[in-house]
Design a protein around this nucleic acid. Structure first.
Lengths: 247, 247
DNA sequence: GCGTTGGCTTGATCCATGTCAACCGGAAAT
DNA sequence: ATTTCCGGTTGACATGGATCAAGCCAACGC
């Protein structure tokens, strides 16, 4: 009979893979600020991991809500549909961010969440999250902060849509992406866009042609280098100035 | 010596005035769905009532956060300021609605809340609300719903700002106000605007002249009757059609 | 290797809304 | 009663971004 040790190692590897306590995103995600002990209790709650292929829905508007989702890897967009067919991208989400908070309000999802690349998510049953956060003050407080942050983010987008012109919007968008990639240990200056010009346009309240023209303009002026979805930021402060100055 | 009875009555009147359990907004506000017993525990928490005069700030962006606020009577706007001086109204709030949720995220308020008429608010110390909602499941869940509803509302505004044209935006705005007045027992068809054309414009991402022209247009077409801030809606379905149809 | 396809770029033109300016009317101040 | 002021309305004109249209490029299937 073979020694049990290798087997145990394998099992323990699997456990490591699925646990918040060993997730390298834990400082960005729901577990932020929890003690080891508290982390383990959170681990128990997150039983389901799921792979979502590029183009597939994580959930659809109208579906009944029972979980929120933490992105373990990959990239998503959320969009809302109006009766008359118009739609708008309401956000782009990356690893460590939460999806589905909109569903708490009515017990039904109010937007679609679609993977922009092959992704992996952790499903967090919401009633169990509520009951655990009644016991773990840190978890409760952090969850409230995450929801509040979402509200603040939305206000930022409203500001952008309400007061900024096309180039300012795109500059703000690029700087925001750059900052979020940095927080995840990627280059702040060089990244691949996971979304099309049309999706960027939808998010920013612009047509895809306008987005494309703004990219070209930024390139001409030496702020960035664009090659399709590959972006290099050459002049961060230039972009910032462009965003803030009323010209 | 006079009988103590009148005195007691006076005291009890004061208590009635300040308690959630006797507030006629309790079904719209935080106490929604609580039992009598739970309501009384919430009463203990809401010690501070405050009057805010028209034009005064309830809080300012940058101030440190420790309470959220329930509007007992009156009308508020919230606005965000950009470094370069641009600002935008992010919402209008009426009786029964909560203010200050944006502050949870960073422990500092991120917008200004300004009374548009003489108003009265209940201050709810946030750490005490968190600790009470660890004990009262209903309170916890309802609070989560309220935050989520705010996120959904913001998505609606993003949709409006990103995809609708001027008249559609104003129609959506009027219908939303009408619906909220109705929920508070006021006429759905006739109300006074508490905000200026400029504030409406800021909220809707339009200039005040555009707002004014849209009002005039609606009046010409017989959808509404406008006289300064007094609005009568004459044709709800007309407004709805205007909002939904891609023309 | 060649054609097809989807996403992107660029140019020409149009139009909704912004901008600038004049005027109006009611409310508050003198 | 008169003046001032603020918010609102309306008109003339300017413009940023939408729309329409053509063409380009890279990836992919055959």
């Amino acid at each position: 009979m073979p020694s049990p040790i290798p087997l145990n190692q394998e099992i323990s590897l699997t456990v490591i893979k699925t646990a918040c306590s060993n997730c390298n995103l834990r400082e960005l995600c729901l577990p932020f600020g929890l003690s080891l002990d508290e982390l383990e209790r959170l681990d128990d709650l997150i039983s389901t991991r799921r792979r979502i292929k590029r183009g597939d829905h994580l959930y659809r508007a109208g579906e009944s809500f029972d979980s929120i989702y933490a992105i373990r890897s990959g990239f998503f967009k959320t969009d809302v549909l109006l009766e008359d067919g118009r739609d708008q991208v309401t956000g782009f989400q990356m690893a460590g961010e939460l999806l589905g908070l909109d569903g708490i309000s009515t017990e039904h999802h109010t937007c679609n969440a679609i993977a922009l690349e092959d992704s992996e998510i952790c499903a967090i049953p919401f009633n169990r999250l509520e009951s655990l956060s009644r016991e773990i003050h840190n978890l409760q407080h952090h969850f409230h902060k995450v929801m509040s942050r979402e509200i603040v983010r939305d206000h930022g987008v409203m500001m952008l849509l309400g007061t900024m012109r096309a180039e300012e919007r795109l500059a703000a968008f690029l700087l925001n992406l750059s900052q979020r990639f940095t927080a995840r240990g990627f280059s702040h200056a060089e990244f691949y866009l996971r979304m099309t010009r049309e999706e960027i346009g939808s998010y920013l309240g612009l047509k895809l042609e306008t987005v494309s023209r703004a990219f070209s303009k930024f390139q001409e002026e030496g702020y960035i280098a664009v090659q399709q979805k590959h972006i290099r930021i050459l002049n961060v402060s230039g972009l910032k100035a462009l965003m803030n100055h009323r010209c």
